[in-house]
Design a protein around this nucleic acid. Structure first.
Length: 419
RNA sequence: GUGGGUGUCGUCAAGUGGUUAAGACCCAGGGUUGUGGCUCCUGUAUGCGUGAGUUCGAAUCUCUCCACCCACCCCA
């Protein structure tokens, strides 16, 4: 128990963390190219923020939050997603008074109390972006474009972009009514879960896996047919923009999104290569969120992408992921005099900006070479009595096996040429 | 919250009631008191998730609990 990470959490050990850094670095670079800056918000927030922001009736808020009281009796919650905190920060610092739109990205851990399974954890990591202050569908297209660029540059193909519009609160209410009217005659035939959803969120009935539900839902009205003029125009614009960017997509009227704050654009990027949790990226527009949290009426659009799922997809499709990064030079030594000389040499090399590793476990030469091999050293320098006497180094190229004597000053050239 | 599966060395894994629990890899040391990735040798589980029971005897049978995995729900 004591030596076991809590259920649903995972240690990211060094051989994994190089992969994480690679993915994160790629994301940071893409965001830089899109002119997006990073924002960092607290891991925990007031519980009320999520109740209001994510929605009181959502599963996330109702049964998945890590909520506790702090010592002063405040109700605190570990963030279950990224958008609410970023929106809060946007309002708190009156960022809306500055240049619009505000474009930010984040790379953060999130927490949800769920039963873990493949691609689902209690602590998971999201990277994402949020744009505030523009209603233009160009923003939606840019956000989607960014996500697609990210996947493409990571070498992840066979992904499908699905888009939908869930309208604004007005047209959604109309649709809800129409859907309920359509389903009501067969209410008794619905599964228990769907009966439960009938009032709470009838749109969810549409993607039920229950065969009876599916039969009843056949021919049900589609949200897209109930969009108001403004929402319909927006959805058409989005498609025009995506077409202009050469981004393929399919329209999927079943995308509903489980968080209350979404309006208009909803999208998912899915894969079928990683089992049941196929949604790697989900996002959409949330024009009511900022106002709902007490800020000025401010539209917003963004997406969240699960890093754990992304890595699973990358491994499944054979995308490049770094492992065991090389060390420029390993400094081996024989004898006590050479010991200090070696440590000094390694230090000099490090100061010059190269990576150097030396034996700090008192191994014999053979063991040191073995270790040099393990740490993926490009070169190994050997220092012993002979070298100290002559002021030279023996340097071995670990890939070709070539070995020669050089003067210490020549080492720089060799290390540089290896890059 | 509901359902299914699995639990033997750091990892993979043999073993299905009978003395000391295979093997491989990894790791460490050595064959070579100055040379790795190959080779050879040596070492590493007082224990088979936990607790109890059946038995002369249990990793092997029964039950309890626990952990992990997978799926539903929902979502990243």
């Amino acid at each position: 128990m004591l030596t076991k990470a809590p259920k649903g959490t995972k240690d990211i050990l060094p051989e994994q963390s190089v992969k994480w850094q690679y993915v994160e670095g790629k994301f940071r670079d893409i965001c830089r190219r899109y002119g997006i800056r990073e924002t960092r918000t607290p891991v925990f927030e007031h519980t009320e923020l999520f109740r209001r922001g994510v929605g009181d009736t959502t599963d996330v808020v109702q049964k998945e939050m890590y909520t506790f009281e702090d010592h002063a009796g405040r109700s605190i919650t570990l963030r279950p997603e990224g958008t609410a905190g970023v929106a809060r920060s946007y309002i708190e610092h009156k960022v809306y008074a500055g240049v619009k739109p505000e474009k930010v990205y984040y790379i953060i851990p999130c927490f949800r109390y769920e039963r873990p399974q493949a691609g689902r954890l209690r602590e998971f990591h999201q990277l994402g972006t949020e744009f505030f202050g523009t209603e233009s569908m160009m923003a939606d297209a840019e956000v989607i474009s960014l996500a697609m660029d990210f996947f493409r540059e990571l070498g992840v193909n066979d992904l499908e972009l699905r888009i939908n519009s869930i309208g604004c609160p007005e047209c959604r209410a109309n649709y809800r009514k129409a859907l309920q009217n359509f389903l009501r005659p067969n209410y008794e035939g619905l599964s228990d879960i769907s009966k439960d959803r009938f009032e709470r969120n009838p749109m969810r009935i549409l993607d039920s896996k229950d065969p009876d539900d599916q039969k009843i839902a056949e021919g049900a009205p589609v949200m897209l047919d109930y969009l108001c003029d403004d929402c319909r125009k927006s959805f058409e614009e989005l498609q025009t923009n995506l077409n202009a960017l050469g981004i393929d997509y399919t329209i999927d009227p079943k995308i509903v999104r489980g968080l209350d704050y979404y309006t208009k654009t909803a999208f998912e990027i899915v894969t079928n290569t990683i089992g049941a949790q196929g949604t790697v990226c989900g996002g959409g527009r949330y024009d009511g969120l900022v106002e709902n949290l007490g800020g000025p009426k401010t539209p917003g659009i963004g997406f969240g992408l699960g890093i754990e799922r992304l890595l699973i997809v990358m491994e499944a499709c054979g995308a490049y992921l770094p492992e065991n990064p090389p060390v420029d030079i390993f400094v081996a030594f024989v004898g006590d005099d050479a010991k200090n000389f070696a440590q000094k040499l390694a230090h000099d090399v490090r100061i010059k900006g190269f990576s150097a590793v030396t034996d700090i476990a008192e191994r014999n030469l053979k063991g040191q070479f073995k270790y040099a091999d393990r740490v993926n050293a490009r070169y190994t320098a050997v220092i012993g009595d002979d070298e100290i006497k002559s002021g030279e180094l023996t340097v071995k190229n670990m890939i070709t096996g070539d070995q020669k004597r050089i003067r210490t000053e020549e080492l720089d050239e060799i290390l540089k040429s290896a890059e």
